[in-house]
Write a protein that binds this DNA or RNA. Structure first.
Lengths: 206, 206
DNA sequence: GGCGACATGTAAGTGGTTACATGATTCC
DNA sequence: GGAATCATGTAACCACTTACATGTCGCC
């Protein structure tokens, strides 16, 4: 599983399960997500296997925290994973399944609505990622004009780590933008079909 | 779960578990996949719930086949799902996780290789989908010139069902194309960094 | 005293994968 | 006789989700 490796990656600096959860929601949520109820047992197992060690430290506010850090074995394992082959997940996209079978409904307005809703969610998500991107750019003192040209900002980044993080964000943006484009293309096609149907043009082809 | 609904969708016409597996590998694999060991119990459960019924029929070659068809309750359930809200999956992309943490490796050629491999897999997959698209176009007697303009072919399709199927395929193509573009953008940026480093621009960190 | 953020966990269940078991028919 | 395809399944396990249990501390 990758969750273990992701936790190892995050534990570049010591953190508690609760801290890590926050990081999942912030810096990493465009490509991974985990619940606390999954994080805690995972950390426990990593410790059992000797990839992490932990100690209880009192919290400034709230109960005691169990803070984890990587062991030598842990960072070896992390490195092994980092240089291993990329695995492309076979994704299960339920909304595409719906769309695929929606032809049987014989109701094009249903399809149209469906696509509009999809487009809505996609644009919202895209806006979130773009906001994060803008924030990063601002924090790094890179001028906005660098953002104007697509990808043009990349060569401006000088820190190795930031470069890698930023690249994954770019992937999310590319991906969502192409989905919105796909929605538009599809909506366009639906409307074209509705127009010809309304005019009464006989279904041609052949 | 959606697998149940997808099976209902596929059982527009009667089929066996084995048949359905073949369909997963063919018409549907760009958005869903299931093993036989998952399909058989799922069909069984759908029958128990009264959404399917089955009978054993002798096969032309090989052992007896259990052929399923939808009941009235089954197609009601299918319809309910088809008009329900689209759910966008939160995806877990392990290769992005690798890339995200790869900054700690301090080895840009590793990143470059990684991106090249990714690009390779993506283009292969893209080619597969584009081949399917071309095949469909050929089978439907649509001229190749319709394919030349992106999405231009859509309005030519007159069959409702084909339209919906084709649209899901288009999404796969859009998606993969944007991923390849992202790979190129990233590789470009890596090479730009390597050039400036080679020229002797001092690394800030040290 | 109650609410909200901090903090750690367990238990039951779902969805999916991997490995295994079994057997018929066809073609070489 | 053996391999390939057709055909149906079970069992063990893994990854993840949802629901629940417990308790601290600070603030209003």
């Amino acid at each position: 599983m990758s969750l273990y490796h992701i936790l190892l990656g995050m534990l570049h600096k010591p953190a508690s399960g609760y801290d890590l959860k926050r990081e999942f929601e912030q810096s990493v949520r465009h490509f991974w997500f985990a619940e606390l109820s999954q994080i805690y047992p995972a950390l426990k197992k990593l410790e059992e296997r000797g990839l992490l060690r932990s100690e209880l430290v009192p919290s400034s506010r709230g109960p005691e925290r169990r803070v984890f850090e990587t062991t030598a074995t842990g960072s070896e394992e992390l490195e092994r994973w980092l240089v291993s082959e990329p695995l492309i997940p076979k994704d299960r996209i339920s909304y595409l399944a719906q769309l695929f079978f929606m032809g049987e409904l014989e109701d094009f307005t249903a399809t149209e609505q469906f696509m509009e809703r999809l487009r809505g969610s996609m644009t919202t998500r895209l806006a979130v990622l773009q906001a994060i991107e803008a924030e990063w750019m601002g924090a790094m003192g890179v001028g906005d004009e660098a953002l104007a040209v697509d990808g043009g900002a990349l060569t401006e980044l000088d820190d190795n780590r930031v470069f890698h993080m930023y690249t994954t964000l770019r992937m999310g943006i590319h991906s969502l933008r192409s989905r919105v484009e796909w929605c538009d293309e599809t909506l366009e096609a639906i409307r074209a079909r509705q127009r010809t149907a309304a005019v009464g043009t006989p279904k041609v082809r052949a």
